[in-house]
């Protein structure tokens, strides 16, 4: 019986001759090798099985929904519990995306704090400028997303006071921070205006030590630890979502306590 795959008219013999070397190279070995490569590719994609793109985007969508729920749960008038000064841990715990030995100290005399965005007065602040503003102290619990916590005592300028002095648009959505250690961060305006949100200059009664953010860091009683940038160099008031260091790696943005 004639094979159904056999062409009715055979190609010109010269065509076969011209492609003889190519046809010879179609070895079974090549096919097997190709098959194995395909298999290996499937195995590689297998690394992603736990977090395929669709799952990742669904989880991030829920995380953004959770940000809105958290903003709704946040009571701007509710104060976090405070503790006696005797409970302050000295020195505080160090935490960053790198080791404490890699901290690069900031020179307080040449340091400037740039203010930008939706503010009336865009200018650079010096450390004495900030020290001259009204100060507030708080002894609060620092809670890390990992689960550990400690009691810390912080003194500095309430961020609300600072934003008011800058003539910031307090109806803007976000306040974002840039730091000397390349750790961008941002918070919602409601939290920025909370009385327990400080631009901290001191720990306990002493000037901030280098590993903990000298000359200025953010300390909020109502956010997880990773929302508190150290060595702040710039503040911007904005309506455009600024994100942050850990947020860009998948961590929740609001991170309210």
């Amino acid at each position: 019986m004639r094979s159904p795959f056999r062409p009715y008219t055979l190609p010109d013999a010269s065509v076969l001759a011209a492609h003889k070397s190519l046809i010879r190279s179609l070895e079974r070995r090549g096919l097997i090798r190709g098959g194995l490569s395909l298999g290996a590719l499937v195995m590689l994609t297998g690394c992603d099985v736990e977090r395929p793109e669709s799952v990742e985007s669904a989880l991030l969508a829920i995380s953004r929904f959770n940000d809105r729920v958290q903003a709704w749960l946040f009571d701007p008038n509710r104060l976090a519990p405070t503790y006696p000064e005797s409970m302050i841990l000295r020195p505080p715990k160090f935490n960053a995306y790198y080791d404490v030995t890699e901290v690069k100290p900031v020179d307080g005399t040449s340091w400037r704090l740039d203010v930008a965005g939706l503010v009336a007065e865009k200018r650079a602040w010096t450390l004495p400028d900030l020290q001259a503003l009204p100060q507030r102290s708080m002894v609060i619990q620092h809670i890390c997303v990992e689960g550990w916590s400690y009691i810390g005592g912080w003194t500095g300028v309430p961020l609300r006071t600072f934003l008011e002095r800058c003539g910031a648009d307090l109806r803007a959505k976000y306040v974002s921070f840039k730091t000397a250690d390349d750790y961008p961060s941002s918070i919602d305006m409601a939290t920025a205006l909370h009385p327990q949100t400080l631009l901290a200059l001191k720990y306990g009664d002493e000037t901030l030590a280098d590993p903990f953010g000298y000359p200025v860091r953010l300390r909020m009683a109502t956010k997880l630890g990773y929302k508190n940038p150290k060595w702040i160099t710039a503040i911007e008031v904005t309506n455009t979502y600024p994100g942050g260091f850990w947020e860009s790696k998948g961590f929740p943005w609001f991170a309210g306590l």
Binding site: E50, R51, L59, I62, V145, E146, W246
Partner: peptide, 30 residues
């Protein structure tokens, strides 16, 4: 596993949902 309660007691990656803490948190909060 990011900050254990019982010293020396980890669950190990086989038992964890989420390849690291950020995704374990996102799974948990979803």
């Amino acid at each position: 596993d990011d900050d254990v309660i019982i010293r020396g007691f980890h669950f190990g990656s086989f038992w964890r949902l989420g390849d690291w803490a950020a995704w374990s948190l996102n799974w948990h909060f979803a």
